[in-house]
Design a protein around this nucleic acid. Structure first.
Lengths: 223, 223
DNA sequence: ACCTGAACACCGTTCAAGT
DNA sequence: ACCTGAACACCGTTCAAGT
């Protein structure tokens, strides 16, 4: 690597898009979305805030690159456990679920721009398996986006949780929502009241998988 | 109403949460999400920017109230055309689709906070019909949120379009995305390439309905 | 080519002061 | 009780100036 020590003598390991993205991910994971500031980023990288613009177009591009970085590693990891069709789809979906849970700021990013680079990797991964299931050409797009919607739904849920004060427990968060639901007018919201009882006890991951299975069942009934 | 003319003599029709929300919706619809500023809102209401805080907690609450206002009218309108089960679900879903298309800023709001007040009306409306379909207790939550995910998916797509420069045609927007997809490496993204061809010609509303139908088919196969 | 950091043009929100 | 509007504490982004 360090064949020639010509430039800067690795004092501060020259800035690069990759280093910037890594630093951004660190801040996002450690302190949340609101803490990612060009000033905070510059401080962490020991540089001026303007320097970042030499490598990254703007904040939106930075967030997209950070999301892409995570999603690329998800797909790489998932690709190793090669299974087929239904199982492959479930594997990709669960990989996404875990990634969104580990990095909730991804949720906001995905909901905000569902056609961004990073999500295309997932679209590709899922779409190929849907195709392999023998879904007719005309239903291919719809079936794949329906599965993607399950992921976007989870993303939206975690994006909302991300915007809470740091360190709020998931369980007390759900309990607070259930509490709010219970306070709604019973006559007007009977069904929501009914769900409120189930909300605190439920397993997010299990529910997510159930949604995916439901869509898979729908796909099965189509072909 | 104006039994006594005691106070302010209706010179400027005193501020109220409702007037503020209506003004906010006007700005959001006419000029987009980024144009909604407390300063712009204050100017439109011919008041000081601080006055708004007397009626609304903060910007997040204002956006939630605006979204709730729209969704309430969607549900009211949809409730009149009373149908049953599958058709009722499709009616609610299409009502939401049209609302999101007419007010794209709702998309960002729904994706950002899927448990907010406004969306509960939809959850209630859809959930009741799912219940009426005879879906077993254990699958009720999953089936309803799966349908909600279709709506959140559409919301996310329109939220992304909303953030574009004003006045971008939907068709040129889709063409631009298809163009980007075509430029991806064919070996790595064969499926996305395949979809790119369908993207410009497709009908959003039709695709949305197809997704809903897919989930409904899945629900049918469960019970 | 790449980096610095002050400066610019904004925000949401607060709050003493008014009526 | 309700409103005013200046002030505060931030932002993302730009850009002359440096190396």
């Amino acid at each position: 690597m360090a064949l020639s020590t010509k430039r800067t003598d690795r004092r501060t390991e020259a800035l690069s898009k990759e280093r910037i993205v890594e630093a951004a991910i660190h801040i996002l994971d450690a302190e949340g979305e609101r803490a990612l500031t060009f000033r905070a980023l510059a401080t962490r990288l020991a540089t001026g805030s303007g320097a970042i613009y030499w490598h990254v177009a703007d904040k939106q591009a930075l967030l997209a690159a950070a999301t892409d970085h995570i999603l690329a590693s998800v797909m790489a990891e998932v690709a190793e456990r090669s299974t087929l069709n239904h199982d492959a789809i479930r594997t990709v979906a669960l990989g996404m679920f875990d990634a969104i849970e580990a990095h909730p700021w991804i949720g906001a990013q995905l909901s905000g721009d569902p056609w961004q680079q990073g999500l295309l990797r997932i679209l590709e991964g899922i779409g190929r398996q849907v195709q392999a299931l023998g879904v007719p050409e005309s239903a291919l797009f719809n079936a794949t986006t329906a599965l993607l919607n399950c992921i976007l739904g989870v993303a939206a849920q975690h994006a909302a949780a991300e915007r809470l004060p740091r360190g709020t427990e998931r369980s007390v968060y759900l309990a607070a929502i259930a509490e709010r639901w219970t306070q709604l007018d019973l006559a007007e919201y009977p069904f929501v009241h009914h769900l409120a009882a189930q909300l605190p006890g439920h397993d997010d991951r299990e529910q997510f998988l159930a949604g995916v299975n439901l869509v898979l069942a729908g796909i099965e009934s189509i072909r």
